[in-house]
Each structure stands twice: as C-alpha cells, then as structure tokens.
Design a protein around this nucleic acid. Structure first.
Lengths: 91, 91
DNA sequence: TTAGTATTTAGTTATTTACTTAAATACTAA
DNA sequence: TTAGTATTTAAGTAAATAACTAAATACTAA
C-alpha cells in the first residue's frame, strides 16, 4: 500500500491517471498535456508503473500506457475498512 | 484531494489511522505505539488533522484523537471512478 | 504560586522528491 | 548505414519532508 500512496501523492501523476481514464495514450501524448519535459513525465510513468497503477505495452517505437484498475480495487477496500467503525463498549 | 494523498503517503500516519480505527486515543497513547519522539507524532497528527482524516477534542490536559470518516468516503468515490472504464469506440 | 504532566511549536538537519539537461537506447525509414 | 523520432536513463539541484532537541503553552494539583 505504501508504493500506491506514494505514487498517488503527486498531482501530476493523478492527472496522468485522469487522462488514461479517458483513453490509452503514448508517453509522448501524455507529455503534451503537461508543461514539463518528457523525461520528467517518463519518471512519473515509471513510478505509476512500479505501483501497478498503469500498464505499458511497446508498439513499434511508441509505448502505450493504460490504466490498471486492480490497485484501485485494493484502495477501495482499504478505505472502506475505515468507514466501518469498530463498536466501543456498549454499556 | 492533494492534502489527503499527501497525508496518506506516510506509513506512520497510516498506522496512526489503524490505531484510531480500534478506539479513540490521546496524543500520548498514540506516541507509545511508535519508536519516535512525541513532537514527531504531534506533527503527524497535525497533518492528519489538516487533511480532515482525524478529529481532536481537548479533554483537560489531554487531546483525544478520533477518526473522521468523511474523507475516506471521498477517497472511495475517487477510486471507484477509475474502476469504471470509459468505453472506447465500438466498431 | 510552584512543580509536574501532556502536548505543541520552533529551529535544525538528513533524506527524499520532482524537476532539469545531456546522453543513451530502441525503433523506423531513406 | 545514416538520420530522425520516441522514450528512458543518468547526473545534478532546489525544494519538500520527516525526523530530532529545546523551548513554549496549557492544564492539574500540591
């Protein structure tokens, strides 16, 4: 869970996830949405990939990134847990 | 959402939330669970409080901390959004 | 008031993070 | 092979973070 939260704690990376929610994109297409160099975006993508929040496939000279929803499921479970308050002593 | 993820991105703070899930605790009781000074824990509590993940009430010379579940609800909504994949073109 | 306990604030420091530029790798096509 | 495009890796830097110690604040009780 630590890698997940570290990955999600950066606004640029969360915006990348927003973009990938709409459709799969190449690294270059992703970088066009930011006022930031390609290497910077590449590093963010690496962090998202290591956290298993995105998936990548090489297609020719392009690398296509897509969302990987499995970790989001885990995050939901983690958060739901905290909404189910343990009962204190009754009397 | 940024403050939320920043707050959740530290393992000590997530462990504090785990402890508070079981029962409300004073700042001192919380610090007993960590190999860390009280001022350090106090700073973590401040960050959790600013992120509205916990609530605090002063009781005499003690400060009692408790979970605030509302932000967890928001987190769940945020994550569910990503599990509902947008349809691509059909044909 | 004075001493003691609980907690927070202030100031400092080591580490981590997010960016940069330059160079390397990988593929495409002339 | 050579030139061009897409992407990543490497190396460096400024800013943010998480820890510490020391001091301040706030309450309790003798």
């Amino acid at each position: 869970m630590n890698e997940t939260f570290k990955a999600l704690s950066d606004p640029t990376r969360r915006k990348i996830l927003d973009l990938l929610k709409e459709r799969d994109l190449t690294a270059g297409e992703i970088s066009e949405h930011f006022n930031m160099t390609k290497p910077s975006i590449s590093q963010h993508l690496k962090i998202l990939k290591n956290a298993e929040l995105v998936h990548d496939v090489k297609k020719g000279q392009f690398v296509i990134y897509s969302l990987n929803t499995t970790i989001f499921q885990e995050l939901i479970s983690w958060a739901i847990h905290f909404t189910q308050k343990t009962n204190g002593k009754e009397e």
